[in-house]
Amino acid sequence: MQRYFLDIPMKQFQESSLSQDQLHHMIRVMRMKEGDSCYFVFTDKKTGIYTLTNAETNPPLFTLTKEIQEQVELPVTVSVVGG
């Protein structure tokens, strides 16, 4: 499943938040159809699975299918020493 990165927090998401390049990639390159899903990753470190519900509108409509809680940081403390 494709991941698309947005420069907004999850609670501010609207379909108009997607860039023309992202929409072109979804609809033309990946040939997404109604019912297809993708990940949207937001600046507040939240990820959601969104499903394309209407590809005919401009911009296409997506609905949140599932919010994902991911631990993406390694649980290791690293110290860098230069000398």
Rank of each mutant, 00 (worst) to 15 (best):
Q2E: 07
Y4W: 02
L6W: 08
L6T: 02
L6D: 01
D7I: 07
I8R: 11
P9L: 07
P9E: 14
P9M: 06
M10T: 05
K11E: 15
Q12W: 03
E15K: 06
E15A: 13
S16L: 09
S16Q: 04
S17T: 07
Q20I: 12
Q20F: 02
Q20G: 10
D21E: 12
D21H: 12
Q22A: 10
H25L: 06
R28D: 15
R28T: 14
R28E: 15
M30H: 04
K33M: 08
K33R: 06
E34Y: 01
E34I: 04
G35V: 03
G35K: 03
C38K: 05
F40P: 00
D44S: 05
K45G: 02
K45I: 02
I49H: 01
Y50C: 05
T51C: 10
T53R: 13
T53V: 15
N54K: 09
N54L: 07
E56Y: 09
E56P: 00
N58T: 13
N58E: 11
N58A: 11
P60C: 05
P60T: 05
F62S: 03
F62Y: 15
L64R: 08
L64P: 00
K66G: 01
K66W: 02
I68N: 01
I68A: 00
I68L: 07
Q69G: 01
E70N: 03
Q71Y: 02
Q71E: 12
Q71P: 01
V72W: 06
V72L: 11
L74V: 08
V76P: 03
S79Q: 13
G82V: 11
